[in-house]
Design a protein around this nucleic acid. Structure first.
Lengths: 213, 213
DNA sequence: CCGCTTATTATACGCTTGAATAATTTCTGC
DNA sequence: GCAGAAATTATTCAAGCGTATAATAAGCGG
């Protein structure tokens, strides 16, 4: 009996591989096509191994969703610098690779369509969404203050909603039909539009000259 | 043998019922949970009947997607009135019920996540998306002309992309977490933002007084 | 009210799914 | 280098899937 050769993966690594394979399959075949067997093939193991690392397939999928959410928000949270450049960086990051590509959208859409079905996913979603929105609201508030504008609570909230919406929408367009847009065209459009909405210039990080008006 | 009683549905009606049941199931259980048996239960028939009206389940799902696309665009295309009010109406329609609700989003997301997998759905998607985008671009162009602005091709395109993005994003936010927003708050935010982006007021249809500046 | 068409049900089939279990290999500590 | 623990494979299982087909009921024209 020729049994397949294998090696034991280091601590935690196999878990990560399985999650990554899960996401690959969901992006490529949809939730419906992301079967244990497909995922196992992608991860280079056999299907049975999944249940050695996860209680069930559903649990693995949920953890995969956590990974997606984290990758969408962690880059935004890692932004440094002064308030006047952070907002701009945030916009650029969210509208360029690797946050904005068709794989991201496929994953995002697959999970979103399942959020109403699966309460576990719903909880993960809600947490991630609120985190993202709060991060942006803080960014905007800080930016306004740094530009000498009073942080009127309601106005700030409305700005956050609008900018969040604009970014989500442009991200969507970029993911859906990135080939229809010239290089960094979406970023440029976003910056111009947000400047108009806020009534303030978004000075590029490398060109700051103190013209804060 | 007690066979289930039934009645023959009028021409075309059963087809429509099946498509509607398909959409209900996709919205409620996701694509994975929208099985022939579930769909049949929802439509009040037995599963076998599906293949009397459609070549396959996939074909029925594709037709269901056409229905979704149509419902998203037909209301926009039916807008009448002068160029200065049509844009506003378009925005309002797309950010209020029934276009903006969680069911719409679930359906949209389910299909979008499948667009990369299924070429048939991809074709349907592309057609609908371009139609929507062109409709909006025309609306904006007409609006700008009516307000005495030269329809600079590139500027018009950029405006269309930005406004389309903003609307998509706000639609998304409204669908995802409509309970976080006050009544018609999203519409108000959209209108304010778009006015800022275009540098023109979006006069409400019932309050037109000729102040075209 | 009867016979024909066909819409509809009922049932069966082959296949895939997630899960469970048993068998086996790998690695670690001694 | 040998035991024992743990990771991995292999196999099996029941359930559910989409599809195919045969039986039956409904409605129509005569």
């Amino acid at each position: 009996m020729n049994r397949r050769a294998f090696h034991r993966a280091p601590e935690g690594e196999r878990r990560q591989d399985l999650i990554e394979a899960t996401l690959d399959c969901i992006a490529e075949f949809g939730l419906k096509g992301a079967t244990l067997r497909q995922i196992a093939i992608r991860a280079g193991v056999t299907a049975g191994l999944v249940r050695h690392y996860f209680d069930s397939k559903d649990q693995m999928v949920a953890e995969a969703y956590r990974t997606v959410i984290a990758s969408l928000t962690e880059k935004a949270e890692a932004i440094e610098g002064n308030p006047e450049t952070r907002l701009r960086d945030f916009i650029v990051i969210n509208l360029t690779e690797p946050v904005a590509n068709s794989r991201s959208l496929s994953l995002w859409a697959a999970f979103i369509s399942q959020v109403r079905v699966d309460p576990t996913l719903a909880a993960i979603h809600r947490e991630g969404y609120l985190g993202f929105r709060n991060a942006l609201e803080t960014l905007i508030s800080d930016f306004l203050v740094a530009n000498g504008r009073a942080p009127d609570g309601d106005a700030c909230r409305r700005h956050a909603i609008a900018i969040n919406g604009l970014m989500d929408g442009l991200w969507l367009e970029g993911c859906l039909a990135g080939d229809l847009f010239r290089e960094s065209e979406l970023v440029s459009i976003a910056l111009t539009s947000i400047e108009a909405m806020l009534g303030l210039p978004l000075v590029p990080p490398h060109a700051r000259t103190g013209n804060s008006n």
